[in-house]
């Protein structure tokens, strides 16, 4: 029973991620030159004891990001990269809201995972690392990601359908910082 209580699980909707159980997390803010980034590391134990399915351990790291809209203004109170590198701990429950589904997801799993949903449908035992990037339609999209500093990623989108299209110079400046 204690082992089950030490496990964590996640429920994701289009605009929110719900995590139940112990986990570490950190989050980057959507302003400055970054994206809205959430990094979660969870570990735990599953199973029902030695006599039945055995004990299994896992470590899951998941980075999810929505791009910064270059035409949108920075919301009041956004602090740029204030504490994006600082880890936080949640023992029971935490929720991450986002304005749209993530367009970038990186998952690394050591151990076992059982995932079902729009993001993944998989059962694996071992080490799996996967990344997916979904550029938006009718837009310019600049993306810079370094797994050694996930919350520092730059992910910017310029929609050409907007009222104020970005200049080529602005876009190329972001592409080649």
């Amino acid at each position: 029973m204690l082992l089950l209580l030490a496990s964590s699980c996640a429920i994701r909707t289009t605009t929110a991620d719900h995590y139940v159980g112990p986990m570490f997390y950190r989050r980057g803010t959507p302003c400055r030159d970054g994206a809205d980034v959430t990094e979660v590391v969870a570990d735990g134990w599953g199973g029902r004891g030695r006599s039945r399915v055995g004990r299994v351990a896992r470590i899951i790291e998941r980075v999810a990001a929505t791009p910064r809209d270059a035409a949108a203004s920075c919301p009041p109170g956004a602090s740029g990269d204030g504490d994006r590198r600082r880890w936080h701990f949640s023992a029971l429950y935490v929720r991450f809201d986002r304005r749209e589904p993530p367009r970038f997801v990186h998952r690394s799993v050591i151990g076992t995972q059982a995932v079902a949903g729009a993001e993944a449908s998989a059962l694996s035992v071992g080490a799996v690392s996967a990344t997916i990037l979904l550029p938006p339609p009718d837009a310019y999209c600049s993306f810079h990601y370094d797994a050694s500093d996930p919350t520092g990623m730059r992910f910017t989108v310029w929609n050409v359908r907007g009222e104020n299209p970005a200049s080529e110079e602005e876009i190329l400046k972001e592409v080649n910082p």
Partner: peptide, 25 residues
């Protein structure tokens, strides 16, 4: 992998993957 992650939606997608595992998707 792409289908598993993206549900084969009609959208542009770029993926990378490294596995050392028994994986069923």
């Amino acid at each position: 992998l792409c289908c598993a992650l993206a549900g084969c939606a009609k959208t542009l997608a770029f993926t990378t993957a490294t596995k050392f595992a028994l994986d069923v998707s």
